[in-house]
Amino acid sequence: MLSDALLEQLTTTPLFAVALTLTAYLIGMAIFRRLKQPTWLPAVLIAALLLAVFLLISGLHYTTYQQGAAWLSVLLGPATVALGMPLYQQFPRIRELWRPLVVCLPVSASLAVVYAVGIAWLMGLPDTVLASLAAKSVTAPIAIGITQQLGGSIPLLMGGLLITGVVAIAVVSLAAKWMKISDERLIGFALGLNGHAIGTVRAFEISPTAGAFASLGMSLTGIFTALLLPLAWHFIG
């Protein structure tokens, strides 16, 4: 473990936390490429595991690290908005499928909330955990705001977002192969709807078309959930 004096000196500015985050991600990308880019082990998961190990070994408290790296979270909003460009480029294709997308979205987004909260409720977990898992399929900038309204834990939410994104990539990939689905629009939409930003990154690796539909699925899921989940939670609670 690093000495308390050294940790205090390193964390006097956010530069240490930012550099630590970027270093973990770059190492994660290098490992991801060395392993030939497995869908079940994305670079962001590797980076998160590396950060967790470092925090454990160094003795650096998560809250201290989070405060230093907080400004990186601010960039999530502009990054999400920037996804509007591929949406605009693929708008003619999106318009062709607007009817099935409109029908599919409410059902899928609702199920994403119901099964997570339902499983946690059956396990007898406290209300804080239920509130933290409700928005686990929504992109982080929107999910954080929803979770704060519901009274959940942001660190727990972030863990749920990471696990959800990784699992969504694996499940969507396997389901597409099993059901012999090759339409990149459908695969991309499923990745964005279920796997938020992590799934969208994977979709862009498939093709620009898949990435655009993933952006659409992620955006619409965020809007739908932000509008209806707090209201539904109020009545149910």
Rank of each mutant, 00 (worst) to 15 (best):
I119T: 11
S207W: 06
A17G: 00
G152T: 05
L125A: 12
F213A: 02
L55W: 08
R95F: 11
A82F: 10
W233C: 00
M85Y: 15
L122D: 06
L191N: 09
S153G: 02
D127A: 15
E205R: 11
R33C: 07
K180M: 13
G199N: 03
G160M: 07
I181D: 01
P155H: 05
M218Y: 00
S132I: 08
W71D: 11
H234R: 15
I142W: 04
V129D: 00
H196Y: 06
A226H: 02
A135M: 01
K177M: 12
Y62Q: 08
L7W: 03
I198K: 00
L220V: 09
P230T: 03
T80A: 13
R33Q: 13
Y65K: 00
T12W: 12
M158L: 15
L162S: 01
L105E: 02
L161E: 08
I223F: 10
I198P: 05
M1L: 13
V74W: 15
L76K: 03
A131D: 02
F213R: 03
F204R: 09
A19W: 11
H61C: 11
M85E: 15
A112Y: 03
T12F: 13
V81F: 09
L186G: 15
A17Q: 01
A197N: 02
P38W: 04
A79D: 05
A47I: 07
T12I: 15
L26T: 13
I198Q: 05
Q90Y: 10
R202P: 01
S58W: 09
R93M: 15
F91A: 14
T225V: 12
A170C: 04
G118N: 06
L56M: 14
L55T: 06
A135V: 08
F91C: 10
I144S: 00
A19I: 13
A70K: 14
P155R: 06
I223V: 14
D127Y: 12
V113R: 08
A69K: 03
I146R: 03
W121S: 15
Q37G: 06
T128P: 01
T221N: 14
